[in-house]
């Protein structure tokens, strides 16, 4: 394996890490590679990609809330600096230790800020109502004062009982186009004497009614969140249906709980049947048998 392929393979291992297990995966990779110097060059960019894609949560320096580290949170032109719009703070983020430092005050865009604040307030109300351990961030698109990105992440890590889970959702609100484009991503890992993973992806979009306008931030924001709440509730219900269908139909279609006779096999007769069938076939007299 040439070095380029090797580093690609290592990155892929890290990017596939289940929720809350990135350090375990990293330890395994370190043991397997045991050449720490070349490994660090591969690990840093891979962890960065992982953190951004997984909506990793950061402690905002000086604030009593967390914020999401993602592509939307990146501060333009500065590597590893991320924005928490809620506290109007940017900070440096270490992708390996997950620690934050060097806070700086960021002046928000005056044009988009009123709507962003209204949207953030509705999102936080929704977050408290439906997520046990959730974090949400609402970003204004620096390129357009009428475009906003809502991100939600909820994590549950329970290594003692061998499971972990992550919910991610994202909604891009475009007030000009009057659209919301969303996605929900779910990962659950259960690994007691085994390795079972749920992975779901869900994309959605909607054109919203003309009553939602930039000129009425708080009314519009709560209407938008009502739409989002509706969509997430419906998604969870459809997931329940999918579970039911897979558990009832697909699972049964793969392997029955018991044979059609509703009894376990009579193994003595299984051998007997086969022997009988063989005998009749070899003699060729008794036809197809009974």
């Amino acid at each position: 394996m040439d070095p380029a392929q090797r580093s690609q393979a290592i990155s892929r291992f890290l990017l596939q890490s289940p929720p809350g297990e990135i350090n375990d995966v990293l330890n395994d990779v370190r043991n397997i590679i045991s050449d720490d110097e070349s490994l660090e060059e591969i690990v840093h960019p891979a962890l960065k990609e992982y953190n951004l894609a997984q909506f990793i949560v950061a402690d905002v320096p000086g604030a009593d809330h967390n914020s999401i580290v993602s592509d939307a949170a990146r501060v333009n032109g500065e590597d590893d600096r991320f924005l928490d719009p809620r506290s109007k703070t940017s900070f440096r983020f270490d992708h390996i230790s997950l620690e934050t430092s060097e806070p700086e005050v960021v002046e928000p865009d005056a044009e988009s800020e009123p709507f962003r604040v209204a949207l953030e307030s509705s999102v936080l109300t929704y977050l408290a109502a439906h997520f046990h351990d959730g974090t949400a961030s609402v970003f204004a698109d620096p390129q357009s004062s009428t475009r906003f990105i809502v991100q939600i992440v909820a994590n549950k890590y329970n290594p003692v009982n061998f499971w972990s889970g992550r919910w991610r959702s994202e909604y891009v609100v475009d007030l000009d186009a009057k659209t919301v484009a969303g996605r929900i991503l779910l990962n659950v890992h259960y690994y007691e004497q085994g390795n079972v993973q749920l992975e779901t992806s869900h994309q959605s979009s909607i054109t919203f009614p003309p009553t939602i306008t930039p000129s009425n931030p708080s009314g519009s924001a709560s209407k938008l969140l009502a739409l989002i709440a509706d969509q997430e509730r419906a998604y969870q219900e459809s997931l329940s249906d999918t579970y039911h269908e897979m558990g009832e139909k697909t699972f049964k279609g793969l392997r029955r709980a018991l044979p059609l006779t509703r009894q376990k096999l009579d193994w003595d007769r299984v051998l007997g049947y086969k022997l009988g069938a063989e005998l009749s076939a070899s003699k060729g007299v008794f036809g197809g048998g009974s």
Binding site: I184, V196, T200, H202, I206, T207, P209, L227, A234, M246
Partner: peptide, 15 residues
Amino acid sequence: GDAWKHDGEVSLSGS
């Protein structure tokens, strides 16, 4: 307004 349009995949796998 309109209805949400959506598509998605659920994958459950393991050993």
